[in-house]
Computed example of a mutant assay.
Amino acid sequence: MAAKANFYWLLFGWFPACWAAPGVAVAKPSARAVSSSDLISWSMGLLIVLSIFFLCIWGLRKLAVLTVNGAEKLRIVGGLSLGMREKVILLQAGKKQLILGVTPGRIQTLHILEGDDCLLRDDPLILARETGFAQKLRQALKGRSDA
């Protein structure tokens, strides 16, 4: 125990005294009171840092960097309320569509639609094939680029 105390005295008591020049007293800085200008400058600094932080978060959301990897593949296409707490939801999962029954205590798959059985198709390629206007517009644009 005494060896430990001697070690700590050498580490914290003797070394700092060695660093000071002999015969020179080390002046301690006097404590000053915190003024209102200090509080204003600290709060302005905090406000600037927080605004930069929230600006970065907003920018990341706008650039869609913070999207979940599976968010593009899974989405709710539509839904129908059957009562106060029951719903039927049409869920798009990749190329499949699921009709789900949702209650407060349970989610059950009612039917699975695949391929041509899908109810709503929001894929632009499929919509372009189905509508005549899109075909005519594409032909008109091709005609202009050739001229």
Rank of each mutant, 00 (worst) to 15 (best):
M84T: 02
G94F: 04
A27W: 08
R121Q: 12
I57C: 03
R32M: 09
N69Q: 08
D122P: 04
V65I: 09
I107K: 11
V88E: 07
T131Q: 04
S37C: 05
S81R: 11
W14I: 05
L98M: 10
K87M: 07
L91T: 01
A128V: 13
F53R: 03
R75H: 06
P16G: 14
K95Q: 15
A17F: 02
L63N: 10
L90M: 10
F133E: 09
L120M: 11
V34N: 13
V88L: 09
S35D: 15
K87N: 03
A17N: 12
S43P: 08
G101R: 01
R85V: 01
P22L: 09
L46Q: 07
T109V: 14
G105Q: 05
I107Q: 03
T109M: 07
G70I: 08
I99N: 00
A128F: 02
L120A: 08
L55E: 13
L100E: 02
P16W: 11
S36Q: 15
V88D: 03
W14D: 09
L82D: 01
V26I: 06
E72T: 06
A93V: 12
E72V: 02
D122N: 10
R61P: 09
I48G: 08
V49G: 00
V24E: 01
R61Q: 12
L91G: 00
G78C: 02
P16R: 08
T103G: 02
L47F: 07
I48S: 13
L66E: 10
G94A: 13
M44S: 13
E72M: 07
I57Y: 00
G79S: 01
A17L: 03
K73Q: 14
D117Q: 13
E72Q: 11
L55Q: 14
I57K: 03
D117K: 09
I126L: 03
L55T: 15
P29K: 11
I112C: 04
K96A: 12
L66A: 05
L125Q: 11
